[in-house]
Design a protein around this nucleic acid. Structure first.
Lengths: 263, 263
DNA sequence: CGAAATTTTGATCACGTTCAACTTCAGTGG
DNA sequence: CCACTGAAGTTGAACGTGATCAAAATTTCG
């Protein structure tokens, strides 16, 4: 099911490399079209994979960075008792191989939840580029920080939020992340995942998750049809979930516009 | 209680800057004495603070990196319902301000649990150095990745491990992290924190944590006296906790000369 | 269409919370 | 030296959230 495609890239009108990761990076670093191009030149393959494909397997070497262009995946760990915990959903703009590629061996697995398209480069190539262009090393740090921040919020979810609060927080987070890469449609967004996946992400059982979903539905906070979610009352959801969005700061110094004068 | 001290630094016999963070960095990047010195030159203050001091406050700007030399702290979030979740314990070698300094405003607080000594520099200065020495930007990324990996394991703790398993995992993790910076004494280590702190780190109530502690004690897996912990049966603990240590890979490329042969 | 996966509903049970009281210990002042 | 204080640790009883198990209803898909 993995097939290689010609390295055409996706170009905007201005000839820029226009993928969700670049959108995300531009939220905190000034990337010229040329620099985006340098990043693009690292891509050694554009991959399309089907649903339910293992991308990273706990314990098996993986040293790539795969920038997700389309589709959903999950980073998870399987315990020996058979229980699965999903650490985070991987969305367009996210990087498969973070953190797995930075460890001797990954301690988590990644599996696609839908068909997925990604641009793949090797970690070595990225690091090599970072030597010539320190900005990319810093951008990597910023991405990792954002990952850690998201995880931190998940810890709060699991530790101190009740099941409804947790579900509400989950929906708000996904909505915020999709909005950031331009994939939300106002207060609605596609969420093409089963309740089993959601329950593993939230550390709940499927029946209980189901009940909490209907609770949010009967309380008129959300609507769910097909595999879409609509946030009917975002304000109430935010209050319920104690939702506090975190905004990544820009990389300081000569990298930011208006500071080009510094040597 | 904050007092400045002369910028003497801590030097090893070889004149190297010898602090836990450098030990940690050397686990994945080749740092010459000169480079450690460059890092040291960023330090604008060596601070000593007492117990129970807020270092970072949720919602109030903080743009420093404080490298912990001695002492314990906790990164946490307080919900509006009064519940507290500790995201992670901050140990010597860790960085206060990660991730808070990278956000417009921190979304978590940090409080010291013991007296603490740290070396403080501004994030701007660190980024500026990373421009001249890309290695430091990459090292920052590696540190952030390690932070994310630790958090990921905490998510598994809270979501899919029972309370005893969680406690066992917690003790093993702290032991591993202290060992990494040379602060464990074989299978024993100082853990100068109250059960309330532990319960907030594990998302448990104090009484229940207490029961699980006595369980591990009566099962002869750990001993706890004063504020020390001894792992009496590390193997049994690892089995119980499904413990899987993650080892950070070295930064690839020209940075890691001959490191493949070492260790 | 039939088979499989997913969603929904119900009944029972257990893990961990809550609340309360009691103990231990270190520090402080009479 | 003892009384008092406050923080930390320990124990017990009742309760509730969410798990577990089971089965039915519904959707998806070969």
């Amino acid at each position: 099911m993995n097939r290689r495609m010609p390295l055409s890239g996706r170009r905007s009108a201005s000839g820029d490399w226009d993928v969700p990761l670049v959108t995300r990076l531009r939220g905190f670093v000034d990337l010229s079209a040329g620099e985006a191009q340098e990043l693009h030149s690292l891509i050694e393959a554009e991959m399309s994979v089907g649903r339910r494909r293992d991308l990273v397997i706990d314990g098996y070497e993986f040293k790539k960075l795969a920038f997700v262009r389309e589709g959903f995946a999950a980073r998870y760990k399987l315990l020996r008792n058979g229980k699965r915990q999903i650490i985070t959903l991987i969305l367009p703009g996210d990087v498969v191989g973070m953190p797995g590629s930075f460890l001797d061996l990954p301690t988590f697995s990644v599996i696609t939840l839908t068909d997925m398209k990604m641009d793949v480069c090797s970690l070595d190539a990225f690091v090599e580029l970072s030597h010539r262009r320190p900005k990319f090393g810093l951008a990597l740090a910023w991405l990792a920080i954002q990952e850690a921040t998201t995880y931190a919020e998940h810890i709060v979810d699991m530790g101190r939020r009740t099941s409804v609060e947790r579900l509400a927080h989950f929906l708000l987070e996904i909505h915020a992340r999709l909005t950031m890469v331009g994939l939300a449609d106002g207060n609605a967004f596609d969420l093409p995942i089963s309740q089993e996946v959601m329950s593993d992400a939230l550390g709940l059982s499927v029946p209980h998750l189901n009940r909490m979903l209907s609770k949010l539905r009967t309380d008129r906070m959300i609507a769910r049809a097909d595999r879409r979610v609509e946030l009917l009352d975002p304000e109430a959801l935010r209050r319920l979930a104690h939702f506090q969005p975190a905004k990544l700061a820009g990389i300081p110094g000569p990298l930011k516009k208006g500071a080009e004068l510094a040597s």
